[in-house]
Design a protein around this nucleic acid. Structure first.
Lengths: 125, 125
DNA sequence: TTAGGTGCAAAACCTTTGCCATCCC
DNA sequence: GGGATGGCAAAGGTTTTGCACCTAA
């Protein structure tokens, strides 16, 4: 991966905030330093950086939302190869929400836990 | 929320699968029963149903991706009111991935844990 | 009766891509 | 020099919305 001033600037913005910004917000910030940078470049670099592990893309949804008809709380496993989502049969940790609430002062309603990796079928290939 | 045959059909499809489908797949299934249903209706009903808690929308990302400049593994809290994402200072559970891997046969690389609720600032309002 | 729901189509939106110029190694 | 990048703009694909017509309650 080549080092460019655009990439540096994006990284600097990202390291300098704790706000988990969107691509568009990053674009706005970087624009202050490189006025003619394009949004496409921001996206391309975010992709490169997260691919190389230098940054983290939160909640990589695939591209579209998925829905679940189960009403009980449960966890998920997402295969990074085929994109499928499986239910995981692991007891839900009931006490952790309260602990986080006490620690942070936030009102915690519930939590979402998702494992990532490669499903059985994709391991064969 | 009014009961309509479209809503019933969507719910039936969703309850009858374990595949965590996308809106578009659901649309295709429901179309078999109600050929002239529109994709807009599917989206509207999925919204209503998940709002009322009858179904679960996985990975409600807001609409766009968010990025994080931190490289170490950590957890997040997402405020359902203002949409902001915060880091949570809770030690990462290192052993759970192995346990899930043994149990499921999947290769588990890591997990993503996100708490949901209302942040301190939004509680004031 | 009437507020909420539906179909259709267009709009909105975020993200990706093609093309060509430019820059780093 | 030559392949990787950048800028620009158009394309892509999912989701939302406006509007006029229904329909469940």
């Amino acid at each position: 991966m080549r080092r460019t001033k655009q990439k540096e600037a994006i990284l600097k913005v990202l390291r300098g905030t704790r706000s988990h910004p969107t691509a568009d917000w990053i674009y706005g910030e970087v624009k202050k330093e490189i006025p003619n940078i394009s949004l496409g470049t921001v996206y391309r670099n975010l992709g490169l950086l997260s691919q190389s592990g230098e940054i983290l893309e939160l909640e990589l949804c695939g591209t579209y939302s998925r829905f679940d008809g189960r009403r009980d709380s449960h966890y998920h496993f997402r295969c990074e190869n085929c994109g499928r989502v499986f239910d995981v049969d692991e007891p839900v940790n009931e006490e952790i929400d309260g602990r986080i609430a006490r620690k942070t002062g936030f009102r915690v309603k519930y939590h979402r836990l998702e494992f990532r990796g490669v499903c059985k079928e994709c391991q064969k290939g």
